[in-house]
Design a protein around this nucleic acid. Sequence first.
DNA 1: TAACTTATGTAACAATAGTTACAAAGAGGC
DNA 2: GCCTCTTTGTAACTATTGTTACATAAGTTA
Lengths: 210, 210
Amino acid sequence: MREKLDSYYSFVFEKELLDEIEQVGVYKKLRENELLVDLGDQMKGVPLLLNGAIKIVREDKKGEEILLYFLERGDTCASSFASAISNNKCGIRAIAEKESEIIFLPKEKLDEWLVKYKSWRNFVIDSYNIRLNEMMETIDTLAFMRMDERLYKYLTDKAQILRETSLNTTHQDIAYDLHTSRVVISRLLKQLENEGKIKLNRNKIEILEF
Amino acid sequence: MREKLDSYYSFVFEKELLDEIEQVGVYKKLRENELLVDLGDQMKGVPLLLNGAIKIVREDKKGEEILLYFLERGDTCASSFASAISNNKCGIRAIAEKESEIIFLPKEKLDEWLVKYKSWRNFVIDSYNIRLNEMMETIDTLAFMRMDERLYKYLTDKAQILRETSLNTTHQDIAYDLHTSRVVISRLLKQLENEGKIKLNRNKIEILEF
DNA sequence: TAACTTATGTAACAATAGTTACAAAGAGGC
DNA sequence: GCCTCTTTGTAACTATTGTTACATAAGTTA
C-alpha cells in the first residue's frame, strides 16, 4: 500500500503525513461497478483514489439520475469530505467505473491534519476547487449544449478517463447517465455514426474522432 | 463596521478572529446592480457578506449566461476563495441584487487563519459545502425540471432572498437568468398568471402563491 | 436448433422550447 | 396632446426532445 500511495501522493503530501496515512488509512480494492457511496450515506471517512475511475451520480427524490463527473487517480470526493467532517448525509452516489484502489481516511484525522500539514490544507482546498469547477462544467453542459453535443462530449470524456478508444456500454446505460431516453440516444448515436465520428457495435462504441 | 460584523458573525467566529477581521478587513458598500466580481478576475481576497444579496452568474465562452445561485448574509463566495488562495481566475460573475455591505478579507490571511482558528476552518469548509449543495440544486433544476417549473422556482426563490412578495423585473431579465428567450418567459408567465399563481404588471410581478 | 432475452433501429407522433414577426400598451419627455 | 422608447402579448412556425410501438438482430440457454 505504501508503494502505491507514494507512487502518486509523494509529490502531494509531506513525508510525515504519508506516514500517518499509512498508519490510519484503510486500503480497499473496488471491483468494476461496485458501489462506494450511496445516496444518504453518512460518511465515516473520505476515500483517496490510488487508481481506477469512479463515477459520481446525482439522484433526485423521484429516483431520476444524472452523471455529475468522474474521479481519477489523485482525486478525492469532496462530497464525502463534506459529509464526513460536518456529519451531513451525502447527496450523491459513487460507483467504480472500473477496478479501482482507494485508501479510506478516518474522519477523526481530517480536521487535525488541516492544522498540522500545509500540504493537506492545499489538497483539501484544491479538491474543493476542482470539484466546484467540475460542477460548473456540468452546469455549462446542461445549460448550453444540445443533447447531440452532450452525447459526443460524454463519449470522448469517458474514453479519456478510461484510457480506451472504445466503450463497452449499451444505449440504455448512456441514457441513464445523460438523463434521457434510450430511443433518443440510439437516434443521436446513429447520427454520429453517419457523420463518421463513431462506429457502433452491439455493447460497444468505437470512437473514431476525438 | 464592528457592530455589523458582530451582529451576524459573533456566533460564527472566535473573538480573536473577529478582532483580526476588524483590523485587516476592508468594508465596502455595494449599490444595486454593482459588479463585485467579473469573469476572469484574479481575486485579491474574499468578500464576507454582511447583508443584502449577491447574484452569482456563470458565463461560457460564447457569452451565454445562466444564474447559479444567490449569496445572502453570512455567505462568502467559494469561487473567490478558490481564486484568491490558489491564484486561479474566477469562473463566475457576481452582481449585487440589491444594496449590500461586504467586508473584503485579504488573501494573505486566509491560509494563516486556517491554522489558527477552528471557527475559520469550519466556516471555510461549511462555505464550500453549502456552495457544492447549491450547485447540485442548480444541476437538479437544469436536469430534471421543465422551463415552467424552473421559472416558478426562480420567482419564489428570488422573492424569498429579497424578502419581498413582488419582484421589480422585466421578462427579458428573467430570460437572461434562465438562459432562454423573452418570448418563452412571457408565454410561461402568462400561463402562471392564468393558474392564479402570480399577477403580472409592467416591470413588476406579484407572487400570489408560494 | 428453437426459444428466450437483451440490444438496437426506426417510424410516427406528442410535447416542449426556441424563433420570427408584428401589434399594442405603458411611461416619459417635449 | 404627440412622439419615442421600452415592455408585453400573441400568432405562426421550426427545432429539439420525449414517447409509443413494433421490428429485427445478436447473443444465451435449454
